[in-house]
């Protein structure tokens, strides 16, 4: 078989070739591909790390919300305050009809029950403010611990420290209150079985409701907030959850979830310079309630 050989114009064989060039081109191409791949991997790494940070910040904030079961206790006591006001008013109505000699005593007990309900509502609002403040502090403390780990400078890519996070406090959709349906006050129990007030399957009061009493005590608030109930004796830990399920609390209800959004500036210097921002959202639900003590 004849080997084809390169011939010059005079018909003589040449000793030069193009393997060096080809090798050079190939190696250059390979190098660029590797650099592109590393850049892409770096960007992916930076994004994943940003998401992890967002989740950690959200969980750090969510843990503060129901610290020492304060929301769970507040929900449970508000429900029991409602029972107390109802029972006291019921006793007064009976006394007014059948036992006039104890009407004054009965009225005083109604007044005490109402005072207790007012105090609880005031403290609920105060707790809401405490929660907001402590969540902000906890998230920023955690952010300051973690932010430095994002910075990365390579010849072809630069990742900055994230901007300060946006913090939102709300609740997770379709998470009911932690309070089990209270019984043994017949009329009240019957009224509480309405779907707007309690869930027939879980026997829990609905989330973010204000089941006011009828009549003279209709001015009192008994606001119950969303919070995971215990399952037998197991308390649900604070955990990350889907961002889409986060909602702002209506009115002035207590909050039980935190959402954190952080932004990261990224610049590339490969070829044409470019820059952009990564956004990550972390969402977490507060620690669940304990059983009523």
């Amino acid at each position: 078989m004849r080997t084809q050989q390169r011939m010059n114009r005079t018909g003589e064989r040449t000793s030069t070739g193009n393997m060096f060039v080809l090798s050079g081109v190939f190696m250059t191409s390979t190098g660029v591909a590797i650099i592109l791949a590393l850049s892409f991997a770096g960007l992916l790494f930076a994004f994943n790390r940003l998401q992890t940070t967002a989740d950690e910040l959200a969980i750090a904030g969510a843990r503060k919300l129901n610290e020492l079961d304060r929301i769970g206790q507040m929900n449970n006591m508000i429900a029991r305050s409602r029972q107390l006001v109802y029972a006291s008013r019921h006793q007064l109505e009976i006394a007014q009809t059948h036992f006039p000699q104890v009407v004054e005593l009965s009225q005083k007990l109604v007044d005490e029950a109402r005072d207790g309900a007012h105090e609880l509502d005031q403290q609920r609002l105060h707790l809401r403010g405490v929660n907001s403040s402590e969540v902000q502090t906890a998230v920023m403390e955690k952010f300051n611990q973690l932010k430095e780990r994002h910075a990365m400078v390579l010849p072809w890519i630069r990742v900055s420290i994230p901007e300060n996070p946006q913090i939102r406090i709300g609740y997770i959709d379709q998470v009911q209150s932690n309070v089990s349906l209270l019984e043994n006050l017949d009329e009240l129990q019957n009224a509480d079985q309405a779907p707007a007030v309690s869930d027939s399957q879980s026997k829990l009061y609905q989330e973010n409701i204000n089941p006011k009493l009828a009549g003279s005590d209709g001015d009192l608030n008994f606001k119950l907030s969303s919070l995971p109930a215990p399952v037998e004796n197991t308390v649900a830990p604070a955990r990350a959850t889907l961002a889409a399920s986060f909602k702002p609390v209506p009115n002035d209800d207590l909050q039980s979830a935190v959402q954190v959004e952080i932004v990261l500036q990224v610049e590339t210097m490969l070829g044409a310079a470019g820059s952009g921002k990564f956004h990550s959202i972390g969402t977490a639900l507060a620690t669940g309630a304990n059983n009523m003590q």
Binding site: M77, I78, A79, R80, S81, Q83, L84, A87, L109, E112, A113, D115, G116, E119, L120, L182, E183, N184, L185, M292
Partner: peptide
């Protein structure tokens, strides 16, 4: 029943039986 109090205020009631 159970009754709860704090700072001389009556907070709540849980009736357990008639």
């Amino acid at each position: 029943e159970y009754l709860w109090y704090a700072n001389e205020k009556t907070l709540g009631l849980e009736r357990k039986a008639k």
